[in-house]
Write a protein that binds this DNA or RNA. Structure first.
Lengths: 346, 346
DNA sequence: TTGTAGGCGTTATCAG
DNA sequence: CTGATAACGCCTACAA
């Protein structure tokens, strides 16, 4: 590079201050000189350095996004929503793939601090991680707003965009109950994540409303990944009284369940009922009608970014209460929740 | 914020230069003073500003990644590979979702220039776009290396990481031919993309080797998306002499083909044969055995980043010839390439 | 081994 | 409306 504001000033025979004014659209510049400057800028192919500008104004247009796994389509959708809003408002995005590693998360937050990012969008690795919590708190205290997405962090003093996991889950399980199911299994999400916990709560709540006792043999701990769900299914289906319905608490676990069913000749929606959390577009293409608790994932990212922008624009008023947005879920019934009742021994 | 190198210096009773030396691990600092400084840094919670540092050294640790569609799992995998390598070498990633829009691409490149990024990884929107070409050339001339990924740009004067699309495609079609197919259709990719063109070339080459005349009625223009492929399939299967095999030139088009087949009661691997380009992990979970031309996508991102890093580390030697890396493809046969020969009229 | 001082490219505050 | 000039936070000769 090399060409700077002085070069332009010299070329246009004005001072650097004037060039700066032109760049920033100050109204106090004569049209004539403005034109001159513009011309020089074009001629020299000058692009102002955001670095210098930021240093001078102490104000970046960059935000950070910490995500546990970019390969997961769910997070890609969130990113998509974020980038849409960011683009609209002229923000750049630093992306940090924490790869579900709290250590990396910590390191990335350091990097974020060094870069003097203006705000942070984060999907924490571990809902209970003390270090993350402290780091994020200190960001907020330093006037760098933080918005959590999908997963929360401890006592909820952060802004966040979540979805109504509890309600969605309850609705799904209630649907099973109305359908006549009484032995309903759940493949749980990790305990250290808000979505995992809330969906588990919803499950219990639905049972309780129907006065069905909670039977722990139908509760399988999962990790939001396919393999574990597959194994859980195996265990469930080998029981003396296997469940007639399974509630799978995220998209990947649903796949594990489906794979097990297919491999073992179980027809979904007949031999075994299944409702998943989060839709899987691909399934439609391959003719599998999975009922799911759906939500607008991309919209979650979008809203999170919008919220962050709002916070960034009105700094100072820190001690506003944390604002939490809950995205509605929608139960989409496609048939997999049904069953051939004769098969089950109620 | 506010706390800077001078605050630390004062606290440690040394000069700012010494603090700087400590930060940058200069060997010319007495252990004693170093300890003092470190302590002050901790005590004050000081984090050096990357902005100021960059401005001073004229040297960022940030690179940019321009991607046409983050929602596409193929690109997510590339990003995953990139971020792995970036993390390893301490680079931060600016992500720009061009959303297949050349205008955005242009704007993002401007932003990248303003941010004084150290290097660029780009998957161009349009292989023939003149503006993009010029912008990227000027980056290279200014010492900002550019590495293309998957898609190229015009006359190939850029570094790039591609895959052996031509060979992979030829292999797939040859497989069909060996299997006895003679009416082989192709769902093409967009003409303005290298992968699209190369796969199309491979198709023709295979036919030509087997001295099978090219029949344009079996060639359908696609756009790498599901819908168009579905429609193409519809047209193909309604012909008097429908193809017995279809080569689908990317993952999304394969889905369109599969959806069509399933919806119309065509058994893949019996009534109709299908080979796709790029594997789709999910299909395995749902029991669909699709044969595909596979490649290590994440590895492509990784290699691209490594190449970029190499370029960034040895600036100056600009006029080295562009280095192009071609990732091998692998034909994975799972059965969908087979057919019940009786069905087709050869 | 340590300190002084100038520069990196902008913006912003004053005068004029 | 325009031009000096001092920050912004750090690095790096050059001196000491």
């Amino acid at each position: 590079m090399g060409i700077n504001i002085y070069d332009v000033a010299q070329n246009a025979k004005v001072s650097s201050a004037t060039v700066s004014r032109v760049i920033n659209g100050s109204p106090h510049v004569r049209e004539e000189t403005k034109a001159k400057v513009m011309q020089s800028i074009k001629a020299l192919g000058y692009t102002p350095s955001a670095l210098a500008r930021n240093l001078s104004t102490g104000d970046t247009h960059n935000i950070g996004f910490l995500v546990p796994d970019i390969e997961n389509p769910f997070f890609s959708m969130i990113l998509s929503g974020i980038s849409k809003a960011a683009d609209e408002y002229g923000y750049n995005i630093f992306i940090f793939n924490t790869a579900d590693d709290a250590g990396k998360e910590c390191r990335f937050l350091e990097a974020a601090r060094a870069e003097r990012l203006r705000g942070l969008l984060v999907i924490p690795v571990d809902s209970r991680n003390e270090t993350t919590y402290k780091q994020l708190r200190s960001f907020v205290q330093d006037g760098v707003p933080v918005v959590l997405v999908d997963r929360d962090l401890r006592d909820g003093r952060f802004d966040g965009v979540y979805s109504e996991d509890f309600f969605g889950s309850m609705q799904a399980v209630s649907c099973f109950l109305e359908e006549g199911h009484r032995r309903i299994a759940i493949i749980n999400g990790p305990e250290n994540s808000r979505p995992g916990n809330e969906r588990w709560r919803g499950y219990k709540e639905a049972l309780s409303k129907w006065e069905i006792p909670l039977q722990m043999q139908y509760v399988k701990q999962g990790d939001f990944h396919q393999e574990r769900a597959y194994d859980a299914m195996a265990e469930l289906m080998c029981m003396e009284h296997p469940p007639t319905a399974v509630f799978s608490s995220n998209n990947l676990t649903s796949l594990g369940c489906i794979r097990y069913a297919l491999e073992h000749g179980l027809s979904i929606g007949e031999d075994i009922s299944l409702i998943g959390f989060d839709d899987i577009e691909l399934l439609q293409a391959v003719g599998i009608q999975l009922s799911v608790v759906d939500r607008d994932t991309s919209q979650m990212g979008w809203k999170a970014m919008k919220l962050l922008i709002r916070r960034m624009h009105k700094a100072g008023e820190d001690d506003t209460a944390a604002s939490e947005i809950y995205m509605p879920t929608k139960l989409i019934l496609r048939g997999s929740e049904k069953w051939r009742r004769s098969h089950g021994t109620v």
